[in-house]
Design a protein around this nucleic acid. Structure first.
Lengths: 181, 181
DNA sequence: ACGCAACCGGACGCCGCTGTCCGTTTTATG
DNA sequence: CATAAAACGGACAGCGGCGTCCGGTTGCGT
């Protein structure tokens, strides 16, 4: 849902979207190092077409996960109880990680190219900042938890998510408990 | 230091040891998927020689990490205060993970082949069992922590270790706190 | 010291992934 | 509907890692 690309032929836009959908699936299943062949094949498109819309893997990764970041931003912006937005953010992030190996790698800065992930992690940190402050002000989270600590928690949740839903839940409970005053 | 291979020529044994040393270094730096070329090169040996001693990657991985497991077993067996052996085990494991990417992957069952890692994880769980029980009996660890939960903690420590020593320490503090009653 | 067996490692062919090129097809315009 | 521009995708060459083969070398027993 990026801004409309006015000068783009109909078939081009169609293929671009198909690639993006396929990329999200493939990255979710196989991680960020997945062969681009797999993406093109799943999109029903030649490799050249993929490269035309996304010259580098980085471009494709960035575009693929834009939705996730937007969803998290919206979650925070529209959350009913701002004091609990931080917890909701962690829960939702953990859930996204559970279904998306690529997102785990992205947030752990373990992508094929660090430059790719750096921007996205920064953006995630920006989303995290205000809810964390608010939760601390409300006495729901220990005051000595820095942004970086929250990021560490997210990375640990990612590790847990690889072990399936059970582990994911257990880790979330454990870590929320550890963050409480 | 596995049992002596009586029928093994001197140069063969020498090369075998060199490969093992090189493998530990390479796996530590690059993870379990590191190219075997790199191992052979660092050992100053041709690939064929490597394959002669370790026909599959699994053989090499298993042999490479035997020392780590033995060290942990020894740590537990000889620990002065059995009640605190569990905590010592976690600390030492975290430290090993900090300096060894391969060991992180191994304990997270994320090796190239699951069969490789399964045995080692089982062995690690066996090491974990008694100290955990004892720590719980001594009231140092919550009673509702299962073996699997302890393993989850180890995996999360692994994720933290990728971020450097600072993260490693922080995660250890956070998780030990979460495990306490 | 000598000969045989064991061992070595450079070289080879294979495979999967990458990124680009170019003849063909599809779309937009007048 | 015709034509030019834009986009398509199969095909190609290159690269890096794998596993093996074989002519040459080294160690060990006599």
């Amino acid at each position: 849902m990026s801004a409309a690309r006015p000068s783009l032929r109909a078939d081009a836009r169609r293929n671009r979207d198909a690639v993006l959908v396929a990329a999200r699936e493939v990255f979710a299943e196989q991680g960020l190092d997945a062969p681009l062949d797999a993406v093109a094949r799943r999109a029903g498109v030649g490799r050249a077409t993929l490269y035309r819309s996304f010259p580098t893997r980085e471009d494709l990764v960035r575009a693929s996960f834009d939705d996730n970041l937007e969803a998290l931003e919206a979650l925070v912006a529209e959350h009913a109880d701002p004091d609990r937005a931080f917890e909701a953010l962690l829960r939702t992030t953990a859930e996204l990680q559970l279904r998306d190996l690529g997102f785990i790698e992205l947030l752990a800065r373990r992508g094929p190219d660090d430059a790719i992930t750096h921007d996205i992690v920064e953006r995630f940190l920006a989303v995290l900042r205000e809810p964390l402050r608010q939760a601390q002000a409300a006495g729901l989270v220990r005051a000595d938890v820095a942004e970086d600590d929250a990021m560490l928690v997210v990375e640990m949740l990612g590790a847990a998510a690889r072990g399936g839903a059970g582990r994911n839940d257990r880790a979330l409970a454990l870590l929320l408990d550890a963050l409480a005053p």
